[in-house]
Design a protein around this nucleic acid. Sequence first.
DNA 1: TGCACTTGTTACTCTGAGGTAACACGTATG
DNA 2: CATACGTGTTACCTCAGAGTAACAAGTGCA
Lengths: 173, 173
Amino acid sequence: MFARNGFHGTSMNDVAEAAGVTKPVLYQHFDSKQDLYMALLDEVGNRLLTAITKATAGAAGGRQQTEQGFLAYFQWVANDHDAFLLLFGSRASRDEESTHAIRRITAGAADAIAPLIAANIGADHRRTLAHGLVGLAEGVSRRLVELGESFDPLVLGKQVADLAWAGLRAVHD
Amino acid sequence: MFARNGFHGTSMNDVAEAAGVTKPVLYQHFDSKQDLYMALLDEVGNRLLTAITKATAGAAGGRQQTEQGFLAYFQWVANDHDAFLLLFGSRASRDEESTHAIRRITAGAADAIAPLIAANIGADHRRTLAHGLVGLAEGVSRRLVELGESFDPLVLGKQVADLAWAGLRAVHD
DNA sequence: TGCACTTGTTACTCTGAGGTAACACGTATG
DNA sequence: CATACGTGTTACCTCAGAGTAACAAGTGCA
């Protein structure tokens, strides 16, 4: 519900009805709407980070890691469009608290990417580009998900990794 | 106000107060809060699109266009952080209508980028990568703006254009 | 001076939705 | 059978905030 209609577009009654219960039941498990939303963000975000971390850890060499990392990302998206929309969709409205939660996720993804970037540039420059590559995957995914198109993560991962890897080899201070 | 606190985090009283008037005055100019918000999105978005279009039109050759395009983007961001946050910040909550408005902007930016991509790939693949590059610039900017860091658009544009251009030369079907 | 018009303000209505109090129903336990 | 408890529901309270009605105050024109 949150993924598709946003935080403010989803009432606790909506959530309760979708869960097949009534509102007070929700409040037995979560202190507030915000609390429920945060739990959801954390859950979904951690799944993404875990997938990426595992994928890059299990690959040898920068190029392999790049491909596996993007592959894991796009598999995560393809596997659960709603999860992507919840974190990165345009409906995801955020207050102070959830903004931090999302920032933690993107920063985590960037941290996984940063080491892949040529070492002959400054740390700050590298972090900046790392966040750019996270945005690259996000931009690609948003278009496909919001248009409702299905896609092959294998193909997409390869295509985007090609661009990213070649780009990363070219950067310098 | 909308850029910093989001649509739902900003009341019409807030807007009115910031404008030095009272609420009914706003309703003499705009039919509804939504109407005001949409006018703002359109205004700001068109400024971005115009800047990019002009920049790429005035450049000769793909590489030049790439650099000038990203430069224009980052100049727009550096010049008005709030404008960026309004369209792409994490606080930007969006209903159906504003989502379309934003999509029009990103699609417009992608359209300006798409022709730069090597022609030996399918049109769909090209559009996908174009949206990815828009996301690239967005990801880079979001980090810098939300961290409140100031930056030099000239340097940043060059760095990102280097990555993008090298990446674009490497893509194939 | 007096009337119409523009432009603003104060003070109100009303609805959506978050959150809660009180109550009903099924099930283990003495 | 009766009591206590867990788990759910209905029905309510409350309040922020969008939108409006009624009213004040300055300004051009006869």
